[in-house]
Lab assay of single mutants.
Amino acid sequence: RLHIEVEGTELMKKLVEEAKRRNLNVRAKVENGKWIIEID
Rank of each mutant, 00 (worst) to 15 (best):
V26H: 02
V16N: 01
G8R: 11
A19Y: 13
N25G: 08
L2F: 14
E38A: 04
N25R: 14
K29M: 08
I39D: 01
L11A: 13
E18R: 06
E18D: 09
V6L: 06
I4K: 03
K20R: 14
R21D: 05
R27L: 11
G8E: 12
I4L: 10
T9D: 14
V16P: 00
D40M: 11
K34Y: 08
L11N: 10
I39S: 02
E7I: 14
E31W: 07
L2N: 04
R27P: 01
E7G: 08
T9Q: 09
V30Q: 15
L15W: 09
M12H: 01
K20W: 09
V6I: 09
N25V: 13
L11D: 09
I39A: 02
K29A: 06
K34V: 12
N23M: 11
R27N: 10
V30R: 15
A28P: 02
E31C: 11
K14V: 10
L24F: 07
M12V: 05
V30T: 09
A28E: 02
I36Q: 03
D40H: 08
L2Y: 14
N25E: 08
L24I: 05
E10Y: 08
V6T: 06
E31I: 14
K13G: 04
T9N: 09
R22T: 04
V6Q: 03
N25Y: 11
E10W: 13
E38L: 10
E5H: 08
A19H: 02
V26M: 02
K14W: 14
N23H: 13
I39E: 01
W35Y: 05
E7F: 14
K13N: 08
K14R: 12
R21T: 03
R22G: 05
N32H: 08
K34S: 05
N23E: 06
G8S: 15
N32T: 02
R21F: 06
L11R: 09
K13H: 09
E31A: 10
H3F: 14
E38H: 08
L24V: 06
W35T: 01
V26A: 03
V6F: 07
R21Q: 07
K20T: 09
A28S: 06
A28R: 03
E18L: 11
E17H: 09
E10H: 08
E5K: 07
G33I: 02
E10M: 09
R22W: 10
I37W: 01
R22I: 07
L2D: 06
I4A: 04
L11H: 10
I4Q: 04
L2E: 06
V30H: 15
N32W: 03
M12T: 02
R21M: 08
N25P: 08
K14F: 12
G33D: 04
E5Q: 09
L15P: 00
I39G: 01
I37L: 06
H3K: 10
E17N: 09
I37P: 00
K20D: 02
T9V: 14
K13L: 14
V30W: 15
R1T: 14
N25K: 14
K14Y: 11
M12S: 02
I36F: 06
A19G: 03
M12K: 02
L11E: 14
E10Q: 09
T9F: 15
V16T: 03
E18N: 06
W35R: 00
K20Y: 05
W35N: 01
N23A: 06
K29S: 11
G8N: 15
K14H: 07
E38V: 13
K20H: 10
I4P: 03
L24Y: 07
N23I: 05
V16F: 07
V6K: 03
I36H: 06
E5V: 15
N32S: 06
R22F: 08
L24R: 04
G8K: 12
W35I: 06
E38G: 01
W35G: 00
L11F: 10
T9P: 10
L11S: 08
D40K: 06
N25I: 12
L11V: 10
E38W: 12
I37Q: 00
E7Y: 15
L2I: 14
E7K: 12
N23Y: 05
E38S: 09
I36L: 06
K34M: 10
D40V: 11
K34P: 00
L15Q: 00
E10T: 06
E17T: 07
W35F: 05
I39W: 05
R1N: 10
W35D: 00
K14A: 11
K14E: 07
G8L: 13
N25S: 13
G33L: 04
E10I: 07
W35V: 04
M12L: 06
K13V: 10
K20L: 14
R27K: 11
H3T: 15
D40F: 15
L2A: 05
L11Y: 08
K20S: 06
R1C: 15
I4G: 04
L15V: 11
N32F: 05
W35Q: 00
A28Y: 11
E38I: 14
R27E: 08
K14L: 12
E17Y: 11
K13R: 13
K20M: 12
E18Y: 13
I37H: 00
K13D: 04
L11W: 11
W35A: 00
I39Y: 04
E38R: 04
E18A: 12
N23L: 07
R22E: 05
T9C: 13
V16W: 07
A19E: 01
L15A: 03
I36G: 01
G8T: 15
N32Y: 05
E17K: 11
E17I: 09
E5P: 05
K13W: 14
V6N: 03
R22L: 14
G33R: 01
H3P: 07
T9M: 14
R21H: 08
A28F: 13
R22N: 12
K29N: 05
H3I: 15
R1S: 13
K13M: 14
K34D: 03
I37F: 01
I4W: 10
R1Y: 14
V16G: 01
N23V: 03
V26Y: 07
K20I: 13
R21V: 04
V16I: 09
E5F: 11
L15R: 01
I36D: 01
H3V: 15
E18G: 05
T9L: 14
K34A: 04
R22H: 10
K14M: 11
E10N: 06
I39N: 00
L15H: 02
K14G: 04
E17Q: 13
I4R: 03
R21P: 01
K34F: 09
V6G: 09
R21W: 04
T9H: 11
D40Y: 15
V26D: 00
R22Q: 12
V16R: 03
N32A: 07
V30M: 15
I4N: 03
K20F: 08
D40I: 12
M12G: 03
K13S: 07
E18T: 05
E38N: 04
R27I: 14
V16E: 02
K13Y: 11
G8M: 10
A19P: 00
I37D: 00
L24H: 06
A19L: 15
E31K: 11
T9E: 15
V26F: 07
L15K: 01
E10S: 06
G33W: 02
I36E: 02
R22D: 04
V6A: 04
I4Y: 13
V26T: 01
V26P: 07
H3M: 12
H3W: 14
D40T: 12
W35K: 00
V30A: 13
D40Q: 08
W35L: 06
L15N: 00
L15G: 01
N23R: 09
M12W: 09
K29Y: 15
V16S: 03
R22S: 06
E38D: 10
G33N: 06
K29L: 06
L15F: 10
H3L: 14
R27F: 12
G8I: 09
W35H: 02
D40S: 13
R1I: 14
R22K: 12
A19D: 00
K14Q: 12
K20N: 05
M12Y: 06
E5D: 06
I37S: 00
V26S: 01
I36R: 03
N32G: 09
E18I: 10
K29E: 06
R1P: 13
I4M: 07
E17G: 07
E10K: 10
E18V: 07
L24A: 04
I36M: 05
L24Q: 06
E31P: 00
G8F: 11
I37M: 01
E7M: 12
K29D: 04
